[in-house]
Nucleic acid binder design. Structure first.
Length: 861
RNA sequence: GCCGGUGUGGCGGAAUGGCAGACGCGACCGACUCAAACUCGGUUGCCCGAGAGGGCGUGUGGGUUCGACUCCCACCACCGGCACCA
């Protein structure tokens, strides 16, 4: 029954009950499944909308509330716009927390994980997210992780999965290795313990083979991914361009190669440094005197005891030992003493450098510490062609005489000042390079080295290969077999999955080797061909392997025959809209990009980037601080749902501010949102006209507000300005309220038109309330599926507008003028206006700029 | 140190180079109430002024423009990332 007037006391009209509304529509959705993505028969254009899937540790929190709200707004929007939308959900359900719960409380990781999933799933259903629930996946299901193993085998076949012994990041607390990306400021990303280096044999994915493409393809994402993420990935990949240069070493066969970004300074090399933990250092020390060997061993022991943070501290003094060996500079035959020093890293470049102390600060610091010679080969005081000398002025504007002596090479001698000359300049003391600029000298020296066969242009990357072995239980078993003689054989595809053995009887406590090693029956197996005894690889994969391709599995989640359907992948992929926290800027997002490119090279997908557009939502904080269980400053998702209902929480979050910004819970008003929802609910129930009413007969002022919202909202949603869309909805609700309360009354056709538009747009934010409104308005279809109401362009043009008159840049008058007024007429009106005349006084207008119908700008003398 | 981002009322925030502060929160005033809460209506950038009105205002200083939160230059502050990567 419709109410005829808003002035009725609240007790007489049915009250808005968010929880009843929520329960009712969730039941209807569960029954009729309206948000399932369309199949092959569906001819609509497609949109793949995706939010990063949750990790099932405990309850959902406010970060999840934001994440799945924003993706749902976008999914619902594209459905209204006539798209076949895929909006799937699943769980990233392998990982440490399940295992830690098992160790701490004796919980079964399987039970713990799946109970948490069940709980999170209920919360998400209660939140009214329009997921396609038929595609749910869990990465800890054998049906999923068998395809991780399949992926591993494909990478292995291509030489992209390999084993090597190398110094690795080791978390002494979790007793496992970590990928480079999982070390944050020298600490374990998960538990915060200080990471140490350890030499181990581990499995790697050869992501460095893709370094150039991962870097260059970021250009395609410019404008579609957050600038910050693109920049972080660029820094992380860290391409340096320069040359590889071969040095002979006295008393040793074969050349040693170093990488340098400044091959132009090769003539200035005065010593040579190798990383103490490199094989080369050990070999050179081995060939030296017993004293040197002992000193080197001491030094190496010290270096290896240091944590990563100690070692990476920039301002600590340089240390090293002279190995009493010499390298020969290929351009001039000079003997360069070889030192082992820990400022050179074993796993960057070639683990050795030519040291040019005059032009590299680190080399200079080392040279000064150990009294090694410094040879200047770039004159940075010499002006380059076209360079304009900078003349500085003192406080009186008088040019400061630079002083002849201040600019000489002598006064800036790095050996005296301790400041390396890293700037531009002209080559000196460099034979045939003399007189050249840096850029030209680099080009020429590379030519010369190539001609002599002692060097070549080269690139080097900061990015290291992705270490994927983990000495933990709750992950995907690495599907490889080891023979006694060290031979490694892959488990054949038809024997996959290699199932994770039951946790019963296993000791999960971190002890440095995988708990799976203790599952004797599981570990002991035979060669699939020869039947020889073999041992299974006891390690599990980094869980980032799981999430590096999950977006493809959603496309055919029940397929038992392949990881994903290439056809479906090329139909839906790449993901059109991806949203998640910025914490994955270089972990998950880099790995997913790498795996996508690898799959492209295998011909399994036709795209090279997985996510066409990316949004990082901000965090929900409390009182300016990050929420955390340990601080006890948590706002609980389920509690907020229970307080005012899903819709109020959704509207409050969407309205709180821009998607990318952090939102302080103190500024998120669920009560304000609840009030707004009650207002629009009432509007829908007060409408007295019938659905077939003629809108054109409605109040034109209200109609204009309605149609402006219909016209503007799509652009705003596409720019993810959800807070503005909510504001505009509030404006329309306010305008509708006013019309209902005016003489026009609730029967005015414009009121119905406005109420229907509110319901349709509100569906993005408050779907339960929107459905209830739609039903109250007399429809029995889901409002979530109605096509977007087109704005009538005739109604977007105002009949009269306010024109402003500026005099010397200040607004002095506003005029009500017809929207179609021409310039001359507008200017005449402005000149005639009393306020304008008064403001002008006796000043004379010397220039008039007229932009009808909005602005007249006069300038006076 | 290098790279990136952000600075707008008491607060969250709006604003294709064209009336800065939409929308909301809070606050204040009023209606309803015995009263309070709820709800509804109004006011709300700062300063001067009784008022009409005037002045000042988007981190700071300059510039471009008839006109700048918006574009350009320099600086300051805060936030984030990387950091002995040769």
């Amino acid at each position: 029954m419709s109410q005829s007037s808003s002035s009725l006391p609240a007790a007489e009209s049915a009250a808005y009950d968010p929880h009843a509304v929520q329960a009712k529509w969730q039941a209807r959705w569960a029954e009729e499944d309206p948000f399932r993505a369309g199949g092959d028969e569906d001819t609509r254009p497609r949109k793949y909308v995706l939010a990063m899937f949750p990790y099932p540790s405990g309850d959902l929190h406010m970060g999840h509330a934001e994440n799945y709200l924003y993706s749902d707004i976008v999914a619902r929007f594209w459905r209204h716009r006539g798209y076949n939308v895929l909006n799937p959900i699943g769980w990233d359900s392998f990982g440490l927390p399940a295992e830690n719960a098992a160790i701490k409380r004796g919980a079964d990781p399987v039970k713990w994980t799946y109970e948490n999933i069940a709980q999170q799933r209920e919360s998400l259903k209660d939140y009214g997210v329009s997921f396609d629930w038929s595609r749910v996946l869990h990465t800890s299901d054998p049906e999923y992780y068998r395809w991780n193993q399949w992926l591993f085998q494909r990478l292995y076949e291509k030489g992209l999965a390999y084993r090597k012994e190398s110094p690795v990041n080791w978390c002494p607390n979790d007793q496992t290795v970590l990928a480079n990306e999982q070390v944050v400021e020298g600490h374990c990303e998960r538990c915060g313990a200080e990471v140490v280096k350890k030499k181990l044999t581990q499995w790697y994915f050869r992501i460095t083979d893709y370094a150039d493409r991962l870097l260059d393809d970021l250009n395609q994402l410019e404008g579609f991914w957050p600038q910050k993420v693109i920049q972080m990935q660029r820094n992380w990949i860290g391409r340096s361009v320069g040359a590889d240069i071969d040095f002979r070493i006295e008393g040793r066969e074969g050349a040693v190669t170093v990488f340098s970004t400044r091959p132009d300074t090769l003539h200035g090399a005065t010593f040579f440094v190798v990383a103490p933990d490199s094989d080369l250092a050990a070999e050179l020390a081995e060939g030296s005197s017993p004293e040197v060997r002992a000193r080197f061993q001491d030094y190496l022991d010290g270096v290896q005891r240091e944590s990563e943070i100690e070692r990476q501290s920039t301002d600590r003094p340089k240390t090293g030992v002279f190995l009493e060996r010499y390298a020969i500079n290929p351009v001039n035959g000079e003997r360069l003493p070889i030192w082992a020093a820990d400022y050179v890293l074993a796993d960057y470049g070639h683990g050795a450098v030519m040291a040019v102390p005059a032009h590299d600060q680190r080399d200079l610091d080392f040279a000064r510490a150990f009294d090694l010679p410094v040879k200047v080969v770039v004159d940075t005081t010499a002006p380059l062609t076209g360079a304009i000398p900078v003349i500085e002025l003192d406080e009186n504007g008088v040019p400061i005489d630079p002083g002849a002596d201040e600019l000489t090479l002598d006064t800036i001698d790095p050996a005296k000042t301790g400041i390396a000359l890293t700037g531009e300049g002209r080559m000196i003391n460099s034979g045939s390079l003399d007189g050249l600029s840096k850029r030209n000298a680099i080009a020429r020296i590379i030519d010369q080295l190539e001609a002599a066969g002692t060097g070549r242009a080269a690139k080097s990357f900061r990015l290291r290969d992705w270490l994927i072995s983990r000495q933990r239980y709750w992950g995907t078993p690495i599907p490889m077999l080891h023979a006694e003689d060290g031979t490694i054989v892959p488990v054949p595809d038809e024997q996959l999955p290699v199932l994770l053995p039951s946790v019963d009887g296993l000791d999960l406590k971190p002890k440095g080797t995988s708990p799976l090693g203790g599952a004797t029956e599981w570990v002991t197996t035979t060669d699939p061909e020869s039947g020889e005894p073999m041992l299974r690889d006891p390690d599990t994969m980094d869980t980032f392997v799981d999430s590096s391709w999950y977006f493809l599995r959603y496309l055919s989640p029940r397929d038992a025959g392949e990881a994903f359907s290439a056809r479906e992948a090329n139909k839906w992929g790449p993901v059109d809209f991806y949203i998640g926290g910025v914490e994955h800027a270089i972990l998950h997002l880099l790995y997913a990009r790498f795996i996508t490119k690898a799959l492209f090279d295998m011909g399994l997908v036709e795209f090279t980037e997985p996510f066409s557009s990316l949004i990082n939502q901000g965090m929900v904080i409390l009182g300016g601080a990050k929420m955390s269980k340990s601080k006890g400053n948590l706002v609980l998702f389920q509690e907020e749902l229970d307080a005012h209902g899903a819709d109020a929480l959704r509207v409050a979050l969407a309205f709180a501010g821009p998607v990318e910004d952090d939102k302080d819970w103190d500024d998120v008003s669920t009560t304000g949102a609840a009030k707004f929802l009650a207002r629009v609910w009432r509007i829908a129930h007060e409408v007295t006209s019938s659905p077939d009413v003629v809108w054109a007969e409605g109040d034109p002022a209200l109609r204009r507000v309605t149609h402006r919202l219909l016209a503007d909202a799509p652009g705003l949603v596409e720019q993810t300005k959800f807070n503005v869309v909510v504001a505009r909805l509030m404006e329309l609700a306010n305008a509708t309220r006013k019309t209902i309360d005016s003489d026009a009354g609730p029967g005015d056709p414009a009121v119905r038109e406005a109420a229907e538009a509110i319901a349709m747009v509100l569906d993005l934010f408050a779907p339960h309330t929107a459905e209830e409104m739609w039903e109250a308005l007399g429809y029995d279809s889901f409002v979530g599926l109605v096509p977007w109401r087109q704005a009538n362009p005739m109604l977007l043009v105002e009949e009269s507008v306010k024109a402003v008159v500026q005099i010397d840049g200040k607004v002095r008058a506003t005029l009500d003028v017809p929207a179609r007024i021409d310039g001359a007429e507008l200017e005449a009106l402005a000149r005639a206006d009393e306020r304008v005349k008064r403001s002008l006084g006796d000043r004379e207008i010397v220039r008039a700029i007229v932009r009808p119908p909005k602005v007249v700008s006069f300038s006076t003398r």
